[in-house]
Simulated scan of single mutants.
Amino acid sequence: MKNIVYIDDDFITLGQLLKHVNVISSGGMAKWYLSEYAVLIDNEKENRRGKKIYPGSMVEIPDEGTFFVQKNEEKADNGPIS
């Protein structure tokens, strides 16, 4: 299953992403989860919960799917309000 994760900041950590997509229920579970399951970021195994994931990256989580990280682009405004 392919999913898109939209982020507002420049990056999201792997632990935050796992919580965001409801793989874990709390940030404290990230270390345990990553020690038990092989998570791939751009086809490379990753086990650091603090690993920064930038827009354009692909994260594969076993039994959960493939997630594509994208920047949440808000509609450009038409300039300042007078």
Results as ranks from 00 to 15, higher is better:
2 K>D: 12
4 I>S: 10
4 I>E: 14
5 V>I: 13
5 V>F: 02
6 Y>M: 10
6 Y>H: 08
6 Y>W: 07
7 I>R: 06
7 I>E: 00
7 I>D: 03
8 D>W: 02
8 D>Q: 06
9 D>R: 15
10 D>R: 07
10 D>G: 11
11 F>Q: 04
11 F>A: 06
11 F>N: 08
12 I>H: 00
12 I>K: 02
12 I>Q: 01
12 I>F: 03
12 I>D: 00
13 T>F: 04
14 L>R: 02
14 L>S: 01
15 G>M: 08
17 L>Q: 05
17 L>C: 05
17 L>V: 06
21 V>E: 03
21 V>N: 02
23 V>L: 01
23 V>I: 05
24 I>S: 06
24 I>V: 07
25 S>R: 03
25 S>V: 04
27 G>H: 02
28 G>K: 05
28 G>S: 03
29 M>G: 02
29 M>V: 09
29 M>F: 12
30 A>E: 12
31 K>F: 06
32 W>P: 04
32 W>D: 15
33 Y>E: 01
34 L>E: 10
36 E>L: 11
37 Y>K: 15
37 Y>M: 10
39 V>Q: 09
39 V>Y: 04
40 L>S: 13
41 I>N: 02
41 I>P: 01
41 I>W: 01
43 N>I: 00
43 N>Y: 03
45 K>I: 15
45 K>A: 11
45 K>S: 09
46 E>H: 01
46 E>Y: 00
46 E>R: 09
47 N>C: 10
47 N>M: 11
48 R>V: 09
48 R>E: 13
49 R>S: 10
50 G>T: 14
50 G>K: 13
51 K>Y: 14
51 K>P: 05
52 K>N: 02
54 Y>C: 04
55 P>V: 04
56 G>S: 04
57 S>Q: 04
58 M>Q: 14
58 M>L: 14
58 M>E: 14
60 E>Y: 07
61 I>Y: 04
62 P>K: 11
66 T>I: 10
67 F>D: 02
69 V>W: 00
72 N>A: 09
73 E>H: 12
74 E>D: 08
75 K>E: 14
76 A>M: 07
77 D>P: 09
77 D>E: 13
77 D>K: 12
78 N>K: 09
78 N>M: 09
78 N>F: 07
80 P>V: 14
80 P>Q: 09
81 I>F: 08
81 I>E: 08
82 S>I: 13
82 S>T: 11
82 S>Y: 12
82 S>H: 07
